[in-house]
Design a protein around this nucleic acid. Structure first.
Lengths: 170, 170
DNA sequence: TAACACAAGTTGCTATAGCAACTAAATTGA
DNA sequence: TCAATTTAGTTGCTATAGCAACTTGTGTTA
């Protein structure tokens, strides 16, 4: 550590595992405790595996899956709500909805005099695929957390929720 | 929940917060407890913010920063070690090293009769930039976990490490 | 009513992530 | 010895992520 007089339990920011260490007299990242590094490698490995599997088995990518999962959570919603709910760019949502529509998995209808405003939902084929991918997605999540205690998972979720709030202020 | 007879404390996989819920008689993702969704949105927001900031302030992207941080952790290493250590594709590392070299931040030298084998390190300009970005990176990490208890952070790290191991088996 | 701001959605462009094919050099082994 | 395999690194291509400009329609207001 660069900062002096820092005991494991009384470091100024309250953390126990510090995200940096020393190499010679230089402060450097400690890859074993630096959270952004973990988040990146875990998320990338997870997304990559899911995307490959869904694409090979169902012909849609992970973006389309996320949009599809939101259409199942809240049927008959406009694109902008999907974008907000799954934290995805509205451009990506627009392209994904078009693909789902082309693949005859989702449908939409103009819901007001304003022809831009359309609500979207899954048709029967869409729900069938949703059910199949959901099984895989939940099984993958179960494998991901295998070996963790329920208490640690709860703590993980608390931290994740707080991170989401903190990020919206950064 | 679709599966019946599942109490909050005795669900078969040991989890307390379940990653799915019901809409009508269909099982759907519960965005409030589904971990891959959290990982994706948190990591994307974090990486995006870091990348924009480093690019605007220092002229390098997040890939070059990750490579640079590894060169500070372990100076005088070949590209393949960087790729392994930071879980990044060797192609990306190759391109990032070329950029750092072009920007006069890193240097390399052939270390054996095999001219392919080169070791890389940061020069003075590289270390100066590393020090400046590291300050920002650590401050961003501190902001990210503001409000979390040290115990929850430790639990988060335990879960993250286990996830890394589990992913290597998926 | 004309000018302006706003909102939904589309499209183009760049950055990040990563697979696969490739070059070139070293190693293995029949 | 020389073909096959392995290793380090480069390059091309696609998928994901997201910003920004744009279109189109709505609402607001000077």
């Amino acid at each position: 550590m660069t900062k002096p007089n820092k005991s494991k339990l009384t470091c100024p920011d309250g953390r126990i595992s510090q995200p940096s260490k020393s190499v010679g007299d230089r402060e450097v990242i400690d890859l074993g405790t630096y959270i952004p590094g973990f988040l990146s490698s875990i998320n990338n490995a997870l997304s990559r595996g899911a995307s490959q599997r869904y694409r090979a088995q169902f012909g849609i990518g992970i973006v389309e899956w996320r949009v599809m999962s939101m259409l199942a959570i809240e049927p008959n919603i406009p694109a902008v709500h999907i974008s907000d709910a799954i934290s995805t760019d509205k451009g990506q949502v627009s392209r994904a909805l078009q693909k789902l529509c082309d693949a005859k998995l989702a449908e939409s209808k103009v819901v007001s005099a304003d022809v831009r405003k359309k609500n979207w939902w899954l048709n029967d084929a869409g729900y069938t695929m949703h059910e199949r991918i959901l099984k895989i997605a939940l099984e993958r999540e179960r494998q991901l957390i295998t070996g963790c205690t329920p208490e640690d998972i709860e703590a993980f979720l608390r931290v994740a929720r707080l991170m989401g709030q903190n990020l919206s202020k950064m």
